[in-house]
Design a protein around this nucleic acid. Structure first.
Lengths: 238, 238
DNA sequence: CAAATCAAAACAGTATACATTATAGACTTA
DNA sequence: TAAGTCTATAATGTATACTGTTTTGATTTG
């Protein structure tokens, strides 16, 4: 089996940090297929470094919930319906408040970035481009979260959002869901633009609830097929 | 300088996990003095194992916010007033909801444990025994958090609570604060005993607010002295 | 005597080698 | 043919050795 993923080092701090960044980005972009395993020695060989920094990075990702470590490599966790519900419960508690903060602290540049991400999402939804929609969604969230001054709050949110996002690639491909999400994003964006913290709070609450409902409605059938090959045809394999 | 802390291995999984547990417990019990440094090679020698598992454990604790890694060993983080405020903001958002859950799910055994911890706290407050009070407080929290079925919620709370608890040893020594806390614990316990989720929610909200206020009121003077020698007189130095 | 420079020590970061363990797959057996 | 067992292997876990970097403290110099 050839390497499906190309890792390259990015110049930022020590090796462990570089590798960590790379792998996490790969996961966040949905480039790691469920069931696909990451092996420290393979990645190390690919990067031309030793196992240890890679191993450290992988273990950190395990501690953060991005991966699970088995005795035969590291893979994405398979989330149960309960896991998803648990994650959304925490998000429901944290994100509205964080959005209210962002409504206060977002500057003009931030709003511009959000507007761009929103437009991209709308265009992607119209074109049915799931990958672009996924990306625009992440950009939107990263932008407003970056304006939240409470680092621990924003980082906790980012982590939990990432955990469901990994499986969410499928939900986000669903056309009606895309429409609902875009509408939610627009509503939130407008609250931000008006610097209306209360509206931001309420609309984020609504947004998360919608996201969870959509998720739960679409996930069960997907889960069953997941055991096999997901909806993405596996290329190669002769 | 001799070792101030005695680490011993506990039989549970691999070496890294054992060491991690030991060090985290040491921190949670407040046995690690601020400024005191942990060095992987020292701990490894003490345990008769190699550096790597110890290093892994220390790095995990850094990722979880229990320690900070410097170029000369690992120490407790020094939290600013902003850090404390940030942590309490997250706790305010999460703990009331978690307490409401616990009110539903706590069983008779759990309530009994809580009652014992509460009594211990009251006795400690009456006797002015700060260490025992600290311990009873942790037992109380661990018990009701253990009844929360949403693991991610309870673990997130536990982590953030631990982060302030480290510095809180001082706040908890303050007699009037002890009285306020005991009253809060009793109120929460009674809500649990009545299985009243709403009351648990409200009283936990109140409890956290009180804790934060007390913390902020007592911390600033401590912070300033902390730069030097805290309240503990430094021996030697002629 | 104070400030700047330099050297040695102390530590984390990285590399390599070895040990251990759980799984996959072959092989046996009912 | 199906179920159980066993062995080879692939991966992590652990140990040891080496490297790089920062801090400390001693020494020199103004």
């Amino acid at each position: 089996m050839a390497e499906a993923i190309e890792f390259k080092r990015v110049g930022e701090g020590n090796l462990r940090a570089q590798v960590y960044q790379q792998i996490r980005l790969t996961i966040q972009r949905g480039e790691l297929a469920p069931g696909q395993k990451l092996v420290d020695v393979d990645i190390a060989a690919q990067l031309g470094i030793s196992r240890m920094p890679v191993r450290d990075a992988l273990m950190q990702l395990v501690h953060e919930g991005y991966l699970v470590g088995t005795t035969r490599g590291f893979t994405l966790p398979t989330l149960t319906a309960t896991d998803i519900a648990n994650i959304f419960e925490v998000r429901r508690l944290l994100e509205p408040r964080a959005a209210a903060h962002a409504a206060r602290t977002l500057d003009a540049a931030g709003l511009k970035t959000l507007a761009a991400a929103l437009q991209e999402a709308e265009a992607a939804a119209a074109a049915g481009d799931a990958a672009l929609f996924f990306q625009a969604n992440s950009a939107f969230r990263n932008c407003w979260l970056g304006a939240v001054e409470n680092d621990r709050l924003s980082q906790t949110i980012a982590r939990f959002a990432d955990h469901v996002l990994v499986v969410r690639l499928k939900t986000l491909s669903h056309q009606p869901t895309q429409a609902v999400i875009v509408a939610g994003m627009r509503a939130i964006y407008e609250a931000f633009a008006k610097r209306d913290a209360v509206a931001a709070y309420d609309r984020m609450t609504h947004f998360i609830q919608n996201a969870e409902e959509r998720f739960m409605k679409l996930s069960p059938p997907l889960q069953q097929f997941d055991d096999e090959a997901a909806s993405i045809p596996r290329q190669g394999k002769s």
